[in-house]
Amino acid sequence: MSATMSLKDDATPSTGPLLSVEDLRVTFQRHGEKPFTAVDGVSFDVHPGQTVGLVGESGCGKSVTSLALMGLLPKRGNRVEGRATYEGTDLLSLSDKEMRDRRGRDIAMIFQDPLSSLNPVVSIGIQVTEVMERHQGMSRKDAMPRARDLLERVGIPDPNARLKNYPHQLSGGMRQRALIAMALACEPRLLIADEPTTALDVTIQAQILALLKELVQDTGTALIMITHDLGVVAGLCDEVNVLYAGRIVERGDRHRLFARPRHPYTHGLLSSIPRLDSPRGEKLTPITGSVSDNLPWTSACAFAPRCSHALDVCRQESPPWEWESDGRGLRCFNPVDPEEVRRG
């Protein structure tokens, strides 16, 4: 597997990006409340066949980013700015109808909670074929055998019988597989998975991750993986973006990022989670405070109050985005010294 991975790593830069997100900004403004910027100038590219990870804790804006890209944010109470160029068209400027035509056909999404993403009163078979009827003009008769194949493809046992089942008759893992089958129905070129395994048990999570990995390799679909779990990212993503309070604070190839995290937040996260492979008895180094301590990005580094590396400048100026020599992006005035990481 590692051989195919490295092959792909080499292949990605030669082709142009499939999706290019530039300076995406989402501001929520609820009646009578202060506006809240959930996504604050996020930019990243996704190349065909590439898996890009967006990692961060709850409230960092990773899910809002995906919803904004899919045009799924509620109509009122928010403002979306920036560009998301997908094969030459800006997704953010499309009308509702144009976006509906693309959703499911060009870009498909997999959600965290498969039960609430599936229609409870319609059988799995109909739900999978509906996507094909809608986007590819197939008749239900033609679509049904294909739906069967899709279910089989995503590893659902006895797919003929499952076509007639309703969502509540399937287990959580099976529902997530059914949802993936629906997402794959029109062979989209980009798949967005928003915490697809968070609601699942770890052995089921392993199954689903293996399935996603296999699909990306076999079909050449690009995948945006949104998760809070650094372990999931480490095994799956080619490029990793770490988000904090609505901004990307560090980006890098997964091998470099995990081996030498430079941003204090990434570094802090990695040293605060207990690992199965770390020597026992080692004390965890937590990140102090909580997100409620954050400073506004406009005039400071949001992470500064919780940062062990914070300088005076971190509380006075917003750190700019900078590219490092090893192709890694960083938003920090005082990044962690690689030597220190090795010792820590």
């Binding site: 770890v202 999570q205 991750l209 372990g231 990212v233 480490a234 095994g235 091998h255 690992r275």
Partner: peptide, 9 residues
């Protein structure tokens, strides 16, 4: 099945 934040592993 437990994912480990170490790409090499």
């Amino acid at each position: 099945a437990v994912p480990v934040p170490d790409p090499v592993l």
